[in-house]
């Protein structure tokens, strides 16, 4: 049984048919990437898995349990956390408070302190800035904070929406290193990226999404060598 199973999922915004029967699965311990151009439906896919959007049709299961029946705030308790597109840090709250919000679903305060230490260990920069309002952080620091915040819930599955967006190349490297590190610690990851080259270099498998449909799904290496992927997403003619 796969950890996450998405079967024939259709999601609408009003009349706009954003997801047209998506199928994908993620195994325990994998990094799976979802690549696709602007408006392909990547964010919609993540928001549907996390419960913020409800599909009109289809199934989503986590370790065999139906996820769709839970509202977004209960999906976290099932072990799914999300780093939203554009980071979505709480700008008028401090770094520490943002991390505390990440741990909202945890009732054990001892664990909270340990998890915060773990985040500060991954991102020493956040520790220096712990008392600062999140809105005053740089883009890279905000991405670290959004990632750390999601980890505070001790997720089994981490959904990441374009973590490299708008970051300088050095920071992109750093964030991707951290993603691998988190994965090595046992967290399964679904990584949405436009930076397909980077994403495919760390992912085990990948899917290509095009206007609401999965058009390809394969091992990362295979996708990297696929001529259509190379042409459309890797900028290789």
């Amino acid at each position: 049984m796969s950890m996450l199973n998405v079967e024939n999922v259709h999601t609408f915004y009003g009349n706009i048919h954003a997801l047209k029967g998506i199928n994908l699965h993620i195994e325990q311990g994998e990094i799976v990437t979802l690549i696709g151009g602007n408006g392909a439906g990547k964010t919609t896919t993540l928001r549907t898995i996390s419960g913020l959007l409800k599909p009109s049709e289809g199934n989503i299961t986590l370790n065999g349990e139906d996820l769709i029946k839970y509202p977004a705030h209960e999906v976290v308790y099932k072990g799914v956390s999300m780093v939203p597109e554009g980071r979505g840090v709480f700008a008028r709250m401090s770094v520490t408070e943002n991390l505390e919000m990440g741990a909202y679903s945890q009732s054990d305060t001892g664990k909270l302190a340990r998890n915060m230490e773990r985040v500060f260990h991954l991102f020493p920069r956040l520790k220096e800035r712990r008392a600062q309002l999140a809105g005053t952080l740089s883009g890279g620091e905000q991405q670290m904070l959004a990632t750390g915040r999601a980890l505070m819930a001790e997720p089994k599955l981490l959904l990441m929406d374009e973590p490299s967006m708008g970051l300088a190349p050095v920071l992109v490297e750093l964030i991707f290193d951290i993603i691998q590190q988190i994965n090595n610690e046992g967290v399964t990851i679904l990584l949405v990226e436009q930076n397909a080259l980077m994403a495919l270099s760390i992912a085990h498998r990948g899917y290509v999404l095009q206007t609401g449909e999965i058009v390809l799904g394969d091992k990362a290496e295979q996708l990297r060598n696929d001529p259509t992927v190379q042409k459309a997403y890797l900028g290789i003619e």
Binding site: S50, L52, A72, G88
Partner: peptide
């Protein structure tokens, strides 16, 4: 305060 900043993100926190 989190909800007043962003309801969806707040929901993602649980």
């Amino acid at each position: 305060r989190a909800v007043s900043e962003n309801k969806d993100t707040a929901a993602l926190m649980g």
